[in-house]
């Protein structure tokens, strides 16, 4: 068949059928989605206590009134997140590498790293924030900062560092031994093997769970309110206690959603991209 190919009658009919099938599934998806959302809306707004809940939590006037204070507080959450995140990454990768080290000299480091992850993953983050923010300045040691915000940030770093270290470690452990064998066969040292072969693959593999932890960190910056830091949550509670209206809390929730959604979508996108690239044609 050297002439240009044109779809046969049968193929054209098959395409019509496929189009109909696609249209049908789009229709079903639309109907189901609209149905579910309308149903949810009716269930919530139809509940007996809805009018008072609406007044207490969804009040337009109080939302506008508290907006500026919440925004100002939220800036602290954003800064905290932006500073903590890179520090956590570095700390966690260091801890993970220490835990996977096999050198006899590094045994104490390995034990320390294991102890660190066990202890700091075990302590609830909110307790860590309170203990550090109030405890360390109370030591009145020369040269240490006494800022509660600083120590609350340190608490977040320590707590999340332990989680993220475990994510990195699972990534490092998931690299097939044959990769290490072939790196060693090229006479690479243990450190070079980690640096050039294992860690790059491991990091790529754990990007989705990492971003997941960072979405979680963004939200947990709200825990600094427990240490009396004037962040968005504290500002909202302050306003609420004064005006007997909790709408600012909903405003804060809105802020957090707006901040976390882009990162969540980025996670989805990265996950899809890696899947497509590394499993191209492998079905």
């Amino acid at each position: 068949m050297s002439t240009v190919w044109a779809p046969s009658e049968r193929e054209q009919e098959r395409r019509r059928i496929r189009r109909r099938q696609r249209a049908r599934s789009v229709l079903i998806a639309t109907l189901v989605t609209v149905g579910v959302f309308v149903g949810l809306g009716v269930a919530v707004t139809g509940s007996p206590g809805w009018p008072s809940v609406q007044e207490l939590f969804f009040n337009g006037f109080h939302a506008r009134e508290s907006f500026d204070a919440v925004l100002e507080g939220f800036w602290i959450n954003v800064k905290l997140f932006l500073i903590c995140q890179p520090v956590i990454l570095v700390l966690a990768l260091g801890v993970a590498l220490a835990r996977t080290a096999r050198s006899a000299w590094l045994v104490p480091v390995r034990l320390l790293a294991a102890l660190y992850t066990d202890v700091f993953r075990g302590i609830p983050t909110i307790l860590l924030v309170i203990l550090l923010a109030f405890g360390v300045p109370a030591l009145r040691l020369e040269g240490l900062p006494t800022d509660r915000l600083f120590w609350a940030g340190v608490a977040l770093v320590l707590s999340y560092g332990a989680y993220v270290a475990e994510v990195f470690r699972s990534g490092i452990d998931s690299i097939h031994p044959s990769q290490i064998a072939s790196a060693e066969a090229l006479a690479l040292s243990r450190a070079q093997t980690m640096r050039h072969v294992v860690v790059p693959q491991a990091v790529r593999r754990v990007v989705p769970p990492l971003l997941n932890d960072f979405v979680s960190l963004q939200k947990d910056t709200a825990l600094v309110a427990a240490a009396g830091v004037f962040d968005a949550v504290f500002a909202a509670r302050d306003y609420g206690n004064f005006n007997f209206n909790y709408t600012p809390l909903v405003v804060v929730a809105g802020f957090f959603v707006v901040m976390t959604v882009p990162l969540a979508r980025l996670t989805d996108w990265l996950q899809r991209r890696y899947a497509e690239r590394e499993r191209a044609g492998a079905r």
Binding site: W5, S8, E11, R283
Partner: peptide, 9 residues
């Protein structure tokens, strides 16, 4: 049927 064909039967 792991792949959809583009023509034929």
């Amino acid at each position: 049927l792991l792949e959809d064909i583009d023509d034929g039967v």
